[in-house]
Design a protein around this nucleic acid. Structure first.
Lengths: 246, 246
DNA sequence: GGCGTTTCTCAGAGAAATCACAGACTCTGG
DNA sequence: CCAGAGTCTGTGATTTCTCTGAGAAACGCC
């Protein structure tokens, strides 16, 4: 089931109308804090754990609809945590967090069953999007909710990563895609550069804030080129996307 | 829940009808005083703290619906205060105060959870507006309250920063927008130039008082141009906005 | 290892916003 | 009707913000 919240976003809900429950497992407190903050903002109910033991116990009590699991835990190996979690929660999808240089093939094996993974350092938009996908596909939330964002004649498919304006397909790079997704998930709402940076770029990004301007500029060339502009600047406040009408 | 107070303002209230509670944390007494005064004027209940320890304790006892938190505290680093606050108050939104030049050195993730920040020196209108937004979206107040101010045929949307008169969209600069918001939040009420200066301009503004006249003049050109005027001068007293009807 | 793509920094151009100043204007009380 | 206080607004200097081109570095793919 989906419903539209007062902030104009579409939320995932369980079939009985209660909020989706997500368990976050990571040993770095800053990471669990960051994720908890971002995921709560999606309207989900969050529990976090800092080690394998805590994860198993939380899984038993909290009965989450999805799990975010760091594969590097202090007390036990990621795989055995996963095994125990699976015994506790057989059908619950797992989003793995891995270091960038982790053995890709091993992860690939794990994700064969419909799970997914993101590499550290991640962006919050990425984690949220993957989780939404997992939950949607697992059937914990209503399946009618689909994966296509629409603003005016612009569409973005979160599953296929396809972006079209007026029927015409548009190729975007990964960063451009994430930025556009964030804008389109918050249509008609002014988003500050800081907000955009926090959601779209990885949490360890240490660069200049004007990458946001740069990527807005790229997007405009691809999305708005020669058409009614949909991406608008609010000088001193930020950017927003809205249908060309008016 | 919203209700209209005797002085004609729309107030945010909790679902049970009690006033919203806000905790203000800053080590400069002048700042906490300034903020407390302004926020009490909104009809909110305020508690303030001057350091991290005090903040944690106040959070525990006072159970605020929102927190204003300076990131530069004497006794502990802003982030650890935040962590402890989160443990005490998991779902409470936080408005961060930061120095202007600290913008670059990582506010990473701070706005990610739906929190927000303002840079010092701020204007009170800005702080109040951001706080209202946070509280509104957090669900501590009734969700029916929305983000659009209406006076006659003039509307101002605090989320999209859109201003319309008679259906026609009007572009305002940041300062014009804040001034109009202040006027519209106090319709039919005379506001002195001093009041306007205190609320709309940053607290360290050292310029001529006639910027207010100047910006009223700008606003009139954009809002009242060729229409029934809504912005009125009360010679020797100040300005007020009211619907064109007489 | 080489090559095309993507990401990002830097810096300058350009546009927009802010504000001081000063003279014109308006209202009010005598 | 006048004087003075109060208000309005045109001009332009200055500051701030945004956009974008050029190129360096990192990445991914064969």
């Amino acid at each position: 089931m989906t419903t539209t919240s007062p902030r104009g976003r579409t939320e995932l809900l369980r079939p009985d109308g209660s909020p989706v429950r997500v368990l976050v497992v990571d040993d770095e407190l800053s990471i669990t804090e960051l994720l908890s903050m971002a995921l709560r903002y999606e309207g989900w109910q969050i529990r976090s754990a800092g080690d394998g033991q805590g994860a198993i116990q939380a899984a038993r009590e909290f009965r989450p609809d999805a799990v975010v699991l760091d594969m590097m835990l202090p007390d036990m190996d990621g795989l055995s945590v996963l095994g125990r979690l699976r015994r506790e929660l057989p059908d619950v999808p797992v989003l793995f967090l891995t270091a960038k240089d982790a053995l890709e093939d091993r992860i690939a094996g794990l994700t064969a069953g419909g799970d997914d993974y993101v590499t550290k350092p991640f962006s919050l938009e990425e984690v949220v999007a993957r989780l939404r996908g997992l939950i949607r596909r697992s059937g914990a939330a209503d399946r009618r909710s689909d994966s296509v964002l629409v603003v005016g004649d612009l569409t973005l498919d979160e599953d296929s990563h396809e972006v079209c304006r007026g029927g015409e397909s548009i190729h975007l790079t990964a960063t451009e895609f994430e930025l556009l997704r964030f804008l389109m998930r918050n249509p008609r709402r002014v988003l500050s550069k800081a907000q955009i940076l926090d959601r779209v770029w990885s949490y360890d990004f240490g660069g200049q804030a004007n990458v946001v301007e740069l990527y807005i500029s790229y997007l405009r060339r691809k999305i708005d080129a020669g058409r009614e502009p949909m991406i608008h600047t609010r000088r001193g406040a930020g950017y927003l996307i809205k249908p060309g009408v008016s």
